[in-house]
Write a protein that binds this DNA or RNA. Sequence first.
DNA 1: AATTGTACTAGTGTATACAATGTATGCAAA
DNA 2: TTTGCATACATTGTATACACTAGTACAATT
Lengths: 236, 236
Amino acid sequence: MDNYSENRAVIDRYSLRGKVFNKLREGILDGGYPEKYELREAAISKEFGVSRTPVREALRQLELEGLVSVIPNKGAYVNGITSKDIYDIYMIRSYLESLCAKWACENITSGQIEDLEEIIYLSEFHIKKKHMDQIFELDNRFHLAMYKACGSKILEHILSDYHRYVERIRKNTLSLQERAGMAVMEHKAILNAIKDKDEEKAGQLANEHILKAIDNIKSQGIGNLMQKHEDNGQGA
Amino acid sequence: MDNYSENRAVIDRYSLRGKVFNKLREGILDGGYPEKYELREAAISKEFGVSRTPVREALRQLELEGLVSVIPNKGAYVNGITSKDIYDIYMIRSYLESLCAKWACENITSGQIEDLEEIIYLSEFHIKKKHMDQIFELDNRFHLAMYKACGSKILEHILSDYHRYVERIRKNTLSLQERAGMAVMEHKAILNAIKDKDEEKAGQLANEHILKAIDNIKSQGIGNLMQKHEDNGQGA
DNA sequence: AATTGTACTAGTGTATACAATGTATGCAAA
DNA sequence: TTTGCATACATTGTATACACTAGTACAATT
């Protein structure tokens, strides 16, 4: 009920507002819209074949998420996400995922443990088979299940947000067979520490898990991953 | 320009949407609306003397902030903030303010240092005079200036949000002369560590600063502070 | 030539009308 | 009495019309 991860994902796919919101969000995070691009309500309405009302609501939400800046009576402008932003998010996550793992030691339910074990089990299977899409999906599920297991709707909320923010980067990182395998082993270790109710260890491992992800991104060259954010000709 | 603290505060006070948003937000955080209270668009429109359009936009934003849950085609319901939420936020802040102080060591500008020093100077004055309103305002300014000084728009964004979330609690806490005085001394120590570029110390002190605030809230009795969130008769 | 003022335009802000959906009520049939 | 259904009503979702603002081009004035 207070499931933010589900809530946000579902920010109704079914309403027009939801569709516009998700499309715009995706476009911004994927770099489809260049930095500072002016999002005109009428143009977007036309593009999506809807009226301005749902577009406005979507823009207002994106504003609150920090993905666009709205200047009253003037317009809405894309706030792209820079490589520094991504680095910052990972650093923040390294702290918060650690806290999340610690809290999970106290609050996780046996059902949640089973879910996580199943996710890990499936992950190992798909890694052997090199099913990249499933690997990514399972990584998502592992983290979101973890966020839920910490028992804090506030922490779950913010971690879910950040998780979605860096989705594209994670997709790239996990496409490396080697990293994907390591990640699952790390997940396993974190879960074991949680099962042992070893807060220190769980926190430590979760922290390291994210730091390793940062290392991985760096070695892949984050600039490379960000290239789509360069002006791609859609500018005014 | 990328000043989130200002941006959010200003979420145009001038547009009707902004007014509605701020009023509703305040109402929810102050406990003016009971948990699960159904926010009907028409009723709110009438209450504020505006049309449904700005009300809807405000509700959509509150949804994204997690303060209301919108069930498609059904309604918007208040998600009050519980004492556990507040505790969680303080715990999260204890980590993030620490990170913020560390980052500030590298990124703070001399102008920002001067601003912070002035804030501390003024705080000491108003504490002597027991000007509670000014003390609260200066505490706000200190933290927001700090968030800006860390040089991360992402971290600034989230810390500013949390800061506003617990505004009412902070107001109560700071109304204790003793705590207010301690807080300023702690601020001073944090700033000094930052001026010395001592990341470890700055981080440590910022962390302790928040933990002390938690202790203080606990000793005041957080339940007491939360009383306004009990059903106060506005329910359906 | 520089400056000021004014009409014009493009765009957002708000209100309202209409459509779709959900919910409750009442009635009929089992 | 209870269950099922149909109808009416309440509420949200979307579209559109109108109001307001800010920027801009251009002309009049100095």
